[in-house]
Amino acid sequence: MSLHKNFWCAIAAGLFVASNAMAQTELTVYTAVEAEDLKRYAETFNQDHPDIKINWVRDSTGIITAKLLAERNNPQADLIWGLAATSLLLMKAEGMLEAYAPAGVEKLDPKFVDNSNPPAWVGMDAWVAAVCYNTVEAGKLGLPVPTSWKDLTDPVYKNHLIMPNPNSSGTGFLDVSSWLQMFGEEGGWAFMDALHENIARYTHSGSKPCKLAAAGEIPIGISFAFRGAKSKAAGAPLEIIVPSEGVGWDMEATGIIAGTANLEAAKTLVDWSITRTANEMYNTGYAVVAMPGVAKPVEHFPEGLLEAMIENDFEWAANNRKAILTEWQSRYDSKSDPKN
């Protein structure tokens, strides 16, 4: 058996060495950044560092997180670039991240940097919850324009709302955790109880509610602003609404996987990922980025989004994630009949 193992190890090592010797450093980067942005990110990075090749591993937040956790004893990634900070906190709690203070980290908004020293991760940009409102379909149904979260509990919206399931969607979880933080534990659950009465169904992914709203499949979808802006740009009759109580948000963040064989290259990338160039690059899609003063307004983004972002306690969210999801599931997931 041990002989066998050695044999395979030798073969694997041989392949590894061979592939490494052939080209420049290659980094396996896990990400949940939208597919359409990845190419641009890599190209911009390679303008400054042509010697490092990025191999993207892209999937939705839930899947990438699951993948990373599943691989915790045998990490395949060199680093994570563009995954929810909530997920990175889970990795951190598992001891999976290599603490590293990238050059120039002091220039970032402290909100966007992990509170350990040296930080386990650094933020890139924020994605902010928002409500996508299809003016055409809502108009047909005579639905008023909601301005606050509480408005959405009005029975007039019964069956006209869709939101992501927090058990499978990062966006769904940031909504739920923000409501609990804004309204308090009791108020938060009471709000969700009322909201649940109006929800037609919960989707698996966070961007789908907005895309469904864009396609008129539902008049109102609880999703995030970035998605709404894109759909609007694509010509959907959407209004992107920032509820008045404030909105939850999460950030995309970067962290090095502990034990990576390419630590130097990984550090180079993380250093670059917080540069001004990089922040400007994030700004093409995201209205809020980690480096103060960089962000320019993004087309179709709603007004007042930045101000509406709540003071988000990521650590609290990460540490209570399990309990919140269990509670959510027992309240809303057992009611499995479709509601009419």
């Binding site: 839930g62 699951a66 889970l90 058990n167 499978s168 969607s169 169904r201």
Partner: peptide
Amino acid sequence: PKVIGGQYNMLAVDIYKQVIGQQNF
């Protein structure tokens, strides 16, 4: 059921939700 099931839970989708959604392997 993943595509059209809505809120109607089925076993096979539960596996996916447990693993991908909640990382509860």
